[in-house]
Design a protein around this nucleic acid. Structure first.
Lengths: 198, 198
DNA sequence: GACAGCCATCCTACCAGAAGGTAGGCATTA
DNA sequence: TAATGCCTACCTTCTGGTAGGATGGCTGTC
């Protein structure tokens, strides 16, 4: 991998392996092969697999939080914030750099996840939902977004559709379908268009 | 398990284990424990794990096809067909009998799935999408559904949202959120409600 | 009806390799 | 000198899978 810190390499590698196949879809040996290190050396950085994945998800959450905070600073328009969020994932899927949200993938395996990891994953869903709710609520208040139900319900639906679109893109092996699904999702929230017009 | 054929018991058990944790989330030993049989006996019915899971997904697909065909016979109203489909999953999630679509879960792990299994999983997505497209298309033609984009795009969005809602319900450990997400999804397609009315 | 043969089912016993993890040694750096 | 990072070597348990034997129900034949 890169020539930054080895533990960062391990985390980055584990992340992409998890994105590909989930918690039970990779082993220390897989990481060792990619990073160019021995299995035992990974244990030096992360004593157990649970430690590794918990750290990885915690860091992922930090990045996500930082991303949302940055979005609040850089973009004031709620609709544009949503567009940026969706666009971020569209790009990740298109260039196959990270074609799935780590937490979304792990959430699908929650029943077999170690508890400590599960807690982090659930926390991500709550904070993402909270942020989306606040964006939608603000957009509605400012008359920039048109909601058809409560901000919370709309936020959950938004999040669910984005996650589902990731899954569909993977199932079809076609990045373009992600935009096909998420495009109308954004349009529907934007006033100015008249959905009833045929 | 039940006292029907052993191979059916094995398939049923494997299905619920896959729904819980995916392809790598269970072993022959797990099934042996539940079914009350020895590991080696499972190999008699399904020589390899790939055989087992391929058969399982193929059967799941048959059931799904039969379900769609039956829906076409029993219910003529397209909106009611969609309601029934969503209600089916709502019930599965509520009673925890099958809180996730087997193919949706496996699709999330497509990169690490044996090819033969992956093919079946992708085929399910295609046929489900095809059916939803036809329902939406017919509904729009009959003036019973109001689409805001093409039937195909709307079908993909519908499917994605339902899959995402399954994931959300699992992440929150709360079956009710499934209806919170899918309810408005159906309402939006039904004419008669006026979304713009605050 | 008796009996042989056959086949499906399930068993015990075993295997090789992969899993996550440990012990302890050897450099390099602070 | 102490800690850090990485190594070799090893351990235990689990993994999917195989070999071969016991049982028991079904056939066809006499």
């Amino acid at each position: 991998m890169s020539n930054l810190s080895t533990s960062d390499d391990i985390l980055a590698c584990a992340r992409s392996l998890i994105v590909a196949g989930g918690y039970n879809g990779f082993s220390y040996a897989d990481i060792a092969d990619v990073v160019g290190i021995r299995k035992a050396s990974i244990h030096h950085h992360f004593p157990s697999k649970v430690d590794l994945v918990r750290t990885l998800v915690a860091r992922y959450r930090e990045e996500a939080q930082a991303g949302m905070a940055n979005l609040e600073l850089q973009i004031s328009n709620p609709l544009e914030q949503l567009r940026f969020y969706v666009g971020y994932w569209e790009a990740c899927i298109a260039d196959a750099s990270a074609p799935f949200c780590v937490c979304a993938l792990l959430a699908s395996q929650l029943p077999v996840l170690p508890e400590e990891v599960g807690l982090e994953v659930r926390a991500h869903f709550r904070s993402l939902s909270k942020w989306l709710t606040s964006v939608l609520e603000r957009g509605a208040r400012q008359g920039q977004l048109r909601l058809t139900s409560t901000p919370r319900a709309e936020a959950e639906a938004f999040m669910a559709t984005v996650h589902g679109a990731m899954l569909t893109a993977r199932a079809y092996g076609d990045p373009k379908i992600f935009a096909v699904v998420t495009g109308p999702l954004l349009e529907r929230l934007a006033p100015g268009t008249i959905p009833d017009l045929k």
